[in-house]
Design a protein around this nucleic acid. Structure first.
Length: 1156
RNA sequence: GUGCUAGUAGCUUAGUUGGUUAAAGUCUUUGCCUGAUAAGCAAAGGAGCGGAGGUUCGAGUCCUUCCUAGCACACCA
């Protein structure tokens, strides 16, 4: 044990972090923080897996700081907090990156490159930045066990996922459906709703939209009396004209009013009669049209400025149901039930906010469309391909099928969205189009999209009522950035919708931080949860473990490697497979080697054909499981549950999580999928407390992005400022769930204000404690034997412990940090240490001095522990530096210590109140001095303070010595009887009078404002006021008024709140000479310092000065000698150039100083 | 478009159940103190609380509406 407290040349937080990190490694402190809590209750934390195929950013540091804070806090509180790191390894981002690197597309997989090689490439790519992640984790001081991470591509992990899915399958919560889903032709995959909801997925695009005219079928009737049936058309709007060939129905709202309007087509000028929603008439007949009242005015010839229109009939949507119309674009017919197509059907989702109130319905490309069409028995536009398989009119690459070939307009084989064209394809298409369209457009300048050509065709054929560009937001594939299509796909679904209620119920038991995210955002989302589309038609992921016979009648869902091996063996026995690829797997052997010899990825399991009970071969369903299911499985799969660690989950020893935290942008999916899996499989919550932290924006509040170059690079930041300052800044500057405007100036401020002050306080303590050999070896001085100031700071300290504990407990790290910071700056450094300085460096090693050391030591030690969850590095050094001398704690790191307990006996609220008065009065006196330009060094005779009440007098009496020394005043006068001395001021107390005489408030205030000193005295004498105001009797008590002293005539006065202080600024000779002495002491102290003297060096003083100063020196000789540690003082002539020259009292004083 | 969150001095934030003159820090200017000194104290400057209405004796706090930002949601034709 050392006798000296370590000293440093200055505070360099990055260096501190280096030293502490080394210490942690050498002494395995993290491991010890878990081991020493063995047998204690666990605090279950689950780490959300990041993907290591990208570099970590500063926002990761943010999210990880939050996690770390609570894990460290709970460790201090005695919990055992295991935290297993993990990696998310599957998914489209990895695949797309690999495709790019290999220069291939999805179609090449399985042909140009084997799935096996492809998956190998993915496996190698996905862990590429693992080292950077590990480095960040270490540098920022995030404690998580990285030696044994769970990795989602490992066989054990995948086996657990299969097991979970098997549970869901066996509970009959899965089904295979044919639904319209967001589909990205360029990525070649369907997208989950999570993916559509990636930031930036919805983009504003300008599309060609079209209000098409669907002609009434010959022989049909309409519910309008004087309609010309040859001219009647339904108007329907679409933003995707490419879906018009797939139209098979028009949907109307049954309750909506529709009208028949007579007019002319603006492009062909042919007469038309159109049906649309009543309250959309004005919108559709804008600009070129004008309404007319009578049939007489309903005349039009081509070239007229405006086209007249008139409403000639009205009906309800119901009346239109069942009416047939002519197919708009007759390239194809539905392969079945074609006779039931092209009919008006009802739909509740129809609104009259946009369009025409009649919805163009293409069941193959719209989810609602499919639903209403199915309900009405209208077929989708599916045709049979060369294999006699029903297919939609657009292929999986996003191109029209060849059946749509139009001699003039092309279409067949072309991409339905121009955005899908790559490179020169647009140019090539343009050449073809120029040739084909030359009769219509003489000189085509630019490539015409499919939408543009379809609308052009409709225009020519009198089938387009209006064609416009329209800007709206449309979902885009989050990876390829191309627009998605809604497309019919085969998929596996988990039945989430029918379990919504239970999901909501369970969510209500979760403590969300902030509350609003859980109740509002997440809760609302659960209430409207749709079935979870699990299928992904990709390669690198966990395969759906379902094998089906070719006719679809028999099926098995595999839940383990053991089961797969057994089923494969059956197939071998039945002669369906030659050999069992899992023969080498030893059932029940949980060793890594055993599991390493199996691979459950697609390339491997697709080789396996199983046999059904009736002997039919069964092959695996081609799709993979949505990667969000991987991460939602973490709580179980990280432990290889239920194959290993069964008790962790079953006995609830490691589940549900006590705490999880992730960024709000990234993690909606993770919060959700964990919740769904836990609810469906275990009927439990997955986590009890959850914090969603906000985004890290740049200092202007803009989102950070590499493209804008405003992203903060985390490594450089940590190296410059140190992890402690960055962490402290991030946590204390804004609530974690608010977005953080990341400004490096803020970190500098934290460095200076908090860590600088804390460091200074420690240095101050260390300096003197080392000199005095304070090692905390004396008995703890009883609290009632300590001076007031010590008891005060200890009271504050105990209050702080309670408040910080409560804040951490309530998952409010910002509050905790701010409280600590306020304590260190305002209470400890700027009041306690400042007032107590002399106690540390003056005089003998007395009880008072020991009390001061003990008190300051405890403050520093406690602050170190309290702050350690947020700033793990510096606080550990501080703690260890203190503990290395005193050995008070048997632990080698602050992170192994126990969280301090509140000692209620040390809390003295009355004392805290007193000190508040002392601070207030001192501040007021200093302010008065400032105003009078009287330096604090100049002593003054007295101040007067009017006494407000008995408590105030007692309190002020107790702390008056502090006020006097702080402000350099000789005495304090408490004025009890203030009549005639003080000028008083009275104000009504709105808070108490308001509820009683609300309406009269203004009148009362006005009246009170007029009162004179005499009136105030009378109110005081009568203990209140009674009277009548505006005819109402009013009775006010003394407490309904605030009476404050305002002024003392002839004195320098300051008032704040109810307190008033008056300062006597007259100077006599004695005060003057003392002022001179103090001034000299200050100069000599600086001179000592400049001369390089040690604090304890003793000196001999020589003065060459005038009479005034000389007499002041003589008068205060003992004081000066004691202050500057002078043995003696002599007066003789001195050469100014070799000594200190001071300008005092209108003359020069030369000061000589010699070390003795 | 809908929902959630936020909008308070140049900047970062605090403002409890509505109660008199809106609070800190930072910043700028000025003065001071100091054997903790890249700190500290004091004074001055700077907002009327995103805008507009309303409820109330009284609104930064409650209500309505609009605007801005971020996030989430959306099948929107």
């Amino acid at each position: 044990m050392s006798q000296k407290y370590p000293e440093y040349k200055g505070l360099n937080l990055p260096n501190v972090a280096e030293r502490v990190l080394k210490n942690w490694e050498e002494n395995r402190i993290f491991q010890k923080s878990i081991d020493t809590r063995e047998g204690n209750p666990p605090f279950i934390f689950t780490e959300g897996p990041p993907s290591a195929n990208g570099m970590p950013g500063i926002h990761h540091a943010m999210a990880r700081s939050i996690k770390d804070i609570f894990c460290r806090y709970k460790t201090l509180k005695g919990y055992q907090v295991k935290r297993k790191a993990g990696w998310d390894t599957h998914g489209l981002p990895v695949e797309l990156k690999v495709e790019k690197e290999l220069g291939i597309t999805k179609e090449d997989i399985g042909t140009k490159i084997s799935i096996e090689d492809y998956n190998k490439a993915c496996r190698e790519s996905v862990m590429r930045y693992t080292d950077e992640w590990n480095k960040l984790t270490e540098k920022m001081g995030y404690w998580v066990n990285m030696d044994d991470p769970y990795i989602t591509y490992e066989s054990k992990y995948m086996e657990s996922v299969w097991w979970l899915l098997g549970q869901i399958y066996n509970k009959d919560l899965m089904y295979k459906g044919y639904t319209i889903q967001p589909y990205s032709p360029k990525a070649g995959t369907g997208l989950s709703s999570h993916e559509i909801n990636q930031p930036g997925a919805y983009q504003d695009v300008k599309d060609t939209t079209c209000v098409a005219q669907f002609k009434l079928k010959a022989g049909e009737q309409v519910p309008f009396e004087n309609a010309n049936l040859d001219l009647v058309h339904f108007l329907a709007w679409t933003t995707t004209p490419w879906t018009l060939p797939s139209n098979t129905a028009l949907t109307v709202g049954p309750k909506i009013d529709y009208v028949l309007v007579k007019s002319w087509n603006q492009y062909t000028h042919e007469p038309i009669e159109v049906i649309l929603a009543k309250n959309l008439v004005a919108k559709q007949f804008a600009k070129k049209y004008k309404v007319v009242e009578s049939a007489d005015e309903l005349v039009y010839t081509k070239g007229d400025k405006k086209i007249p229109y008139q409403v000639i009939g009205e009906c309800k949507g119901t009346d239109l149901e069942g009416i047939k119309y002519e197919q708009l674009l007759d390239y194809c017919q539905p392969y079945e039930d074609a006779d039931k197509a092209f009919v008006v059907i009802p739909g509740d989702f129809v609104t009259t906010e946009d369009g025409t109130g009649i919805v163009h319905t293409a069941p193959t490309f719209g989810a609602d469309d499919a639903m209403v069409a199915k309900a009405a028995g209208v077929p989708p536009m599916l045709i049979l391909d060369e294999n006699e398989t029903p297919v939609p009119l657009v292929d999986l690459q996003g191109r029209f099928r060849k059946e749509l070939n139009d001699p003039t307009f092309g279409l067949g084989g072309e991409y339905v969205k121009a955005e899908y064209l790559e490179g020169d394809e647009a140019e090539e298409e343009l050449t073809i189009q120029r040739e084909k369209l030359k009769d219509i457009i003489a000189d085509l300048k630019a490539y015409m999209s499919v939408d543009d050509r379809i609308t052009l065709k409709l225009k020519i054929e009198n089938k387009a009522f209006k064609i416009e560009k329209y800007e709206h937001s449309y979902p885009h594939c989050w990876r390829t950035d191309k627009p998605i299509l809604y497309y019919p796909l085969d998929s596996w679904f988990i039945k989430v919708a029918e379990n919504r209620e239970r999901l909501v119920e369970l969510n209500n038991t979760i403590n969300w931080q902030p509350k609003s995210t859980g109740e509002g955002r997440f809760g609302e989302w659960l209430k409207n949860a749709n079935d979870w589309n699990l299928s992904r038609s990709r390669y690198w992921g966990i395969p759906i473990p379902i094998w089906t016979s070719e006719d679809g009648t028999e099926q098995i869902c595999i839940s383990s490697v053991e089961e797969l091996k057994a089923e494969a063996q059956k197939a071998v026995d039945a002669g369906i497979m030659d050999a069992n690829p899992l023969a080498g797997f030893e059932v029940g052997n949980m060793s890594q080697e055993n599991y390493d010899q199996v691979d459950l990825h697609k390339n491997y399991v697709d080789q396996i054909t199983l046999v059904s009970p009736t002997g039919k071969p069964m092959t695996r369903e081609a799709d993979l499981i949505d990667v969000w299911f991987d991460s939602g499985s973490v709580p179980y799969a990280q432990h290889h549950y239920p194959f290993e660690n069964k008790e962790l989950i079953d006995d609830r020893k490691g589940f549900p999580s006590d705490f999880i935290a992730e960024g709000v942008d990234q993690t909606r999916g993770w919060f959700y999928t964990q919740h769904v899996i836990a609810a469906l499989v275990f009927d439990s919550v997955a986590y009890k407390n959850v914090m969603s932290n906000g985004l890290v924006l740049d200092k202007f509040g803009k989102k950070m992005s590499k493209r804008l170059g405003n992203a903060v690079e985390p490594f450089g930041n940590l190296a410059t400022y140190g992890a402690d300052a960055t962490r402290w800044y991030m946590v204390t500057n804004a609530q974690p769930w608010d977005n953080l405007k990341f400004n490096e100036d803020g970190i500098t401020e934290v460095q200076r204000k908090f860590f600088g002050t804390l460091y200074n306080t420690y240095s101050f303590f260390g300096l003197y404690a080392s000199i005095d050999n304070f090692t905390y070896s004396e008995d703890e001085i009883a609290i009632n034997e300590r001076p007031e100031i010590d008891r005060w700071i200890l009271s504050k300290l105990n209050t702080l412990i309670g408040a910080v504990d409560g804040s951490f407990e309530a998952f409010e790290p910002t509050k905790a940090g701010r409280l600590i910071q306020a304590f260190v700056n305002d209470e400890l450094s700027n009041w306690y240490v400042r007032l107590c300085r002399r106690r540390f460096w003056k005089g003998d090693y007395t009880t008072d001095k020991i009390s001061a050391y003990q008190t300051l030591y405890r403050c520093l030690e406690t602050v170190a522990i309290l702050s350690s969850p947020i700033a793990p590095f510096y606080t550990d050094e501080l703690f260890q530096d203190l503990n290395s001398v005193t050995g008070r704690h048997q632990v080698e790191s602050v992170h192994l210590a126990d969280f301090p307990k509140v000692n209620e006996a040390e809390i003295d609220l009355d004392l805290e109140e007193k000190m508040g008065i002392a601070q207030k009065v001192s501040s007021m006196v200093l302010s008065l001095r400032q105003g009078a330009k009287l330096k604090v060094r100049q002593p003054l005779q007295k101040i007067m303070v009017p006494i407000l009440d008995g408590d105030f007098a007692r309190r002020l009496e107790d702390v008056k010595h502090i006020v006097l020394s702080e402000t350099n005043i000789k005495e304090i006068d408490m004025l009890e009887d203030t009549e005639g001395i003080l000028v008083k001021k009275i104000k009504p107390n709105f808070k108490t009078i308001g509820p009683k005489y609300g309406k009269q408030m203004k009148a009362i205030a006005a009246m009170v404002g007029q009162w004179t000193s005499a009136d105030i005295s009378s109110v005081e004498a009568n203990n209140g006021w009674k009277g009548e105001l505006n005819g109402e009797a009013i009775e006010l008590e003394l407490t309904d008024f605030d009476i404050v002293t305002d002024d003392i005539p002839g004195w320098l006065v300051a008032s704040e709140g109810r307190m008033t202080v008056a300062l006597d600024i007259t100077l006599n000779d004695e005060l003057k000479s003392e002022g001179i002495a103090r001034e000299l002491v200050s100069r000599i102290q600086n001179y000592r310092k400049d001369s390089g003297l040690e604090v304890m060096d003793r000196i001999q003083l020589t003065f060459d000065t005038n009479e005034v100063v000389k007499s002041a020196i003589e008068t205060n000789q003992e004081y000066i000698k004691a202050e500057v540690l002078a043995e003696g003082i002599v007066f003789e002539n001195l050469e100014a150039s070799n000594h200190l020259l001071a300008d005092l009292e209108e003359g020069n004083t030369v000061i000589g100083l010699a070390k003795v």
